[in-house]
Nucleic acid binder design. Structure first.
Lengths: 235, 235
DNA sequence: TCAACCCAGTTTGTATACAATTTTCACTTG
DNA sequence: CAAGTGAAAATTGTATACAAACTGGGTTGA
C-alpha cells in the first residue's frame, strides 16, 4: 500500500465524513482514477479499505457507493457507539494521569469560548478534541481506535446535531459533568453520562432522527456521481 | 470483488483462525497467487480485506504477515471483547423471543453431550454456536457483526483455552448461568456473567496468558512462509 | 399498449507488464 | 575475521490490457 492509496484514502474519507460526498453517491473507479491522476489499481485498493470501515458499500460487479445506512442501521450503530464511548470514559476515569486530566480540562475550557461566540463549526472541532482526549485516556489503543473509527463513520450524521445552538449549550454542560466525573475517578458516572451524551437521550434525539437527510431513507434514484461530469463535445 | 477474492478470503481466514498459518507467517503475494492458481491482483485484494479486520498486518513495501499481536494488544482486545459480549447478552436478555430462547437452550443442551464425552473439539464448535445465538439475539446486526469479527480475530488464542478439560466443565457451567439470566430477562446479570466468561476471570486467565504461543511475544526471526517451498532442481 | 428480449456501451474483475524499493549476499577492506 | 559496501535478485506498488458481467435503450411480438 503506497502513497497513492494513502492520498486517496485521506481525500475520500474526508469528503465522505464532511458530507461533500453524500450517502448514496456513486464512486466509479475510472472517474476517481482520472480525477486523482492515478490508475484504477490504487483506487480499487482505497475503495476496499473504505469498505472495510463501512464508509462505502461495495456491491459485487455493481460498483461502490458512499454507504447510506437506513434509520435502523443508524440506531444500531449509535447504540454501540454509546457503549464504546461509555467504556472509554469508565476506563479513562480510572486510568488517566494527572497530566492527561489537565489536557482534558484544557480542551473543555477551550470549547467554552466557542459556545459563547455561538460558533458551531469551531465548537464541533473542539468537541472532537475533547472526546479524542478521553479516547486516548482509556489507555487501550484497540478500544480507542475502534471508537474513533465508529465516530468517524457516524460523523456525517452527528454533525447535523450540533448545528442547533441550544444543543451546543447542552453539550457543553454535559462535558462539564463528564469532566468532573473523570477527574473524580468515578468511572460509573462517566460511563452513564457519556452514554447519554452520545445517544442524546437528553432531549433532542427525536429532533436528530427527524433531521436525518433523505438519503438515509434509502433513496435509490437520484444518485449523483463523485466525478465531475465532462460535457461531451457537440456532434 | 469477485469469486476469486471470496475464495481466497475464505481459505486464508480459515487458515489463520485455525492456526494453520501461525501469527508472524509471511504472506507473499506471488506465492499465494501461484498456490491458489490466480494472479496477484485478487491476492492483494484479499490481503487488504484481511488487514482491515486485523487478521493480517500490512507493512508498506515490506509485505503482509499474519497479525502477531503482543500480550498488551491481546489484553486490550479481550477487554473490548468482554464488553461487547456483555452488551450482546444484556440486549439479548431484553429482546430475545421465546423461540430464540428455545434455540439457545437447545444449543446449550447439545453441548452437554460433548462435555460428558470430553470431546474438546466438538465442545469448541458447540460453544461457538451458543455464543452466536446470543449475538443474533441482541437484535442489533451491527453489534453482532462487530462482536463476531472480534471473536474471530481472537479465535486463534481463545482456542488454546478450551483445550484444557477442566476449563470446558467450567465453561459449560457458566453457560448454564448465562442461559438462566437471559431466559429470566435479567440483562444486568447476563452482562456480568458474560464479561467474566470471556475474560476468564473465573480462574484460568493466568493459565491462558502463560499458555500463549511464543509468536505473540514478537518473535521476529524464524518466520515461516505460507507458500510451500518447491525444492529447486539440482544443478 | 406493454412486456420480453436482444444487442451495444459501460463498468467491474482479473491478468500481465513495468517501475520503484527493499532484501540478500558476495566481495572488499580495515 | 568482522563489518561495511554495492550490485543483483526478489518483492511490492502502479499502470495497462483484456475478459466478463451489468445497464439501458430500442425493437419485436403478442
Amino acid at each position: 500500500m503506497g502513497k497513492q492509496v494513502l492520498k486517496l484514502l485521506e481525500a475520500l474519507e474526508q469528503e465522505v465524513v464532511t458530507g461533500r460526498l453524500p450517502p448514496g453517491t456513486r464512486l466509479d473507479e475510472a472517474g476517481l482514477a482520472q480525477r486523482f491522476g492515478v490508475s484504477r489499481t490504487p483506487v480499487r485498493e482505497a475503495l476496499n479499505r473504505l469498505a472495510a470501515t463501512g464508509l462505502v458499500e461495495l456491491r459485487p460487479r455493481r460498483g461502490a457507493v458512499v454507504a447510506a445506512p437506513d434509520l435502523k442501521q443508524l440506531l444500531e450503530m449509535f447504540e454501540v457507539m454509546a457503549e464504546l464511548e461509555g467504556l472509554c470514559g469508565r476506563l479513562a476515569a480510572r486510568r488517566m494521569s494527572a497530566a492527561e486530566q489537565n489536557t482534558l480540562q484544557g480542551a473543555h475550557e477551550a470549547s467554552h469560548a466557542h459556545v459563547k461566540a455561538a460558533d458551531s463549526e469551531a465548537y464541533y472541532q473542539a468537541n472532537v478534541i475533547f472526546h479524542e482526549v478521553i479516547y486516548s485516556g482509556c489507555h487501550n489503543r484497540y478500544l480507542s481506535d475502534q471508537t474513533q473509527a465508529l465516530r468517524n463513520r457516524l460523523a456525517a450524521y452527528r454533525r447535523l446535531q450540533l448545528r442547533k445552538l441550544d444543543r451546543i449549550a447542552d453539550s457543553f454542560h454535559e462535558h462539564e459533568q463528564i469532566l468532573e466525573a473523570i477527574v473524580a475517578g468515578d468511572g460509573n458516572t462517566a460511563d452513564h453520562l457519556l452514554q447519554n451524551h452520545v445517544t442524546v437521550q437528553s432531549g433532542s434525539f427525536t429532533d436528530f432522527v427527524s433531521s436525518l437527510p433523505v438519503s438515509a431513507a434509502r433513496r435509490d434514484p437520484g444518485i449523483t456521481s463523485a466525478t465531475k461530469k465532462t460535457t461531451p463535445g457537440a456532434p
